[in-house]
Design a protein around this nucleic acid. Structure first.
Length: 393
DNA sequence: TCTGGGGTCCTAGGACCC
DNA sequence: TCTGGGGTCCTAGGACCC
């Protein structure tokens, strides 16, 4: 039997901003972009008292609270705090840590639990340490597996510590709405409610197995087991490389202006290629995604035969995907995503070979518009790589 | 004649998380 | 005044191979 805790920093971005500017401390603040199309990324508890939540459009939040302070995000700062928070736990307690996201982690404390140091004491010490060293509040869930630990950290915020042991499941888990259940999102919750399943206890009920099987995908059994207190207690300690790298942006106003869209594609592609190289990865699947003014999303992707990390090839493929599919479409959002990533120790081609045009606008335009956008297709991209390989011989 | 079955890869879309 | 952006994982259908 393992002891797993889940640590979740409360209103992470907003709290970090409060540390930078103590004036914010007693005011309702949100971290958000400042354009008319931005949404709330994080709200402090004063703002939440006005009914403001993450993902709420900023204009709506301002309507709810006239004195709302809108702070633009500082992601590098959040990254620094995130690393500090993980490092603190690993230095002072254990490095059996699975990083969940920028503001949360699972910790397997099985090896450090003993008669004197019970799980609840350890959780209390961690909470106190993070407050003392970083000035941040966190909520902690304690259980025998990851699912229950995370449900526990959600149970009481801010500064909560909640155990969900096996015998506490009927009282702490089953009465909750299925809206609170991890991995049951809005789509599944709406569907289940239509069939009379409202509480986590209903998912746990053996009599509902048939309904669950019919309504949910083949993961229904995992949900059933979670609701009954089962779930994985194995942490993933590996810091693996990303499976995809994407960048997208909503236009300030919907647009079908080619120059504006092209500039955005260039910017987004530069950004994803920079990240690709930073991680020393290569891609062979390049995707373009757009959102139209009616909020419909469309994806177009192309998988080529070789792994590449070359800007000119990638932008050529992105431009081709755009021109073949959306050149006459009014767009709300556009995004570029690279996937099927491998570490570039398998690199066969010098990534610099085709980078002559990078940062050279005149050449870039010539290549992207006249040649690449028109001529790059799967075969062309392949040919370029073949030529590159020949040159290297 | 008129058509199997298994496997893999690609594309597109969607659910879910923060 | 209308609704972000970063991800992961899964599925279904079609192409293609044996």
């Amino acid at each position: 039997m393992k002891y797993i805790i889940h640590v979740d920093i409360n209103s992470f971005f907003a709290s970090v901003e409060e540390l930078q500017n103590p004036n914010y401390k007693n005011k309702p603040i949100v971290v958000s972009g400042y354009t008319k199309r931005s949404v709330v990324a994080s709200a402090n508890y004063i703002a939440r008292n006005y009914g403001i939540n993450a993902a709420m459009p900023i204009f709506m939040a301002k309507n709810l609270c006239r004195s709302l302070v809108v702070v633009t995000p500082h992601f590098n700062l959040y990254e620094e705090y995130s690393e500090k928070f993980i490092r603190l736990i690993s230095e002072k307690f254990t490095n059996n840590i699975e990083i969940g996201s920028i503001d949360e982690c699972y910790v397997d404390i099985t090896n450090i639990v003993n008669k004197k140091n019970q799980p609840i004491n350890i959780a209390y010490q961690i909470q106190k340490m993070i407050k003392a060293k970083l000035g941040l509040n966190c909520s902690i869930g304690i259980a025998n597996n990851k699912f229950l630990a995370k449900m526990g950290s959600d149970y009481k915020k801010p500064l909560g510590i909640t155990t969900i042991w096996k015998n506490e499941i009927p009282n702490k888990l089953w009465p909750q709405s299925i809206d609170n259940m991890l991995w049951i999102g809005k789509a599944s919750a709406d569907l289940l409610k239509k069939h009379g399943i409202y509480r986590i206890g209903d998912i746990a009920n053996e009599k509902n197995k048939k309904v669950l099987e019919k309504l949910l995908d083949k993961n229904w059994l995992v949900h059933y087991q979670h609701a009954n207190g089962g779930g994985s207690d194995t942490l993933d300690y590996s810091k693996s490389f990303p499976k995809s790298i994407g960048n997208s942006e909503t236009f300030l106003n919907d647009t079908c202006d080619f120059d504006e869209i092209k500039d955005k594609i260039v910017e987004l592609t530069h950004s994803v290629v920079r990240q690709l190289k930073y991680h020393r990865l290569q891609t062979k699947t390049i995707s373009l995604k757009v959102k139209t003014p009616d909020f419909k999303q469309y994806n177009k992707s192309l998988t080529i035969e070789h792994y590449i990390d070359n800007y000119n090839l990638i932008i050529g493929i992105v431009m081709r995907l755009f021109q073949e599919n959306f050149s006459q479409t009014t767009l709300r959002l556009i995004g570029v995503t690279l996937s099927s990533l491998v570490q570039n120790k398998e690199l066969k081609i010098s990534s610099e070979l085709f980078d002559d045009y990078r940062n050279n606008d005149e050449n870039f335009n010539k290549v992207s518009e006249r040649e690449i956008a028109e001529k790059i297709n799967k075969k062309f991209a392949k040919d370029i790589i073949t030529i590159a390989e020949d040159k290297l011989k």
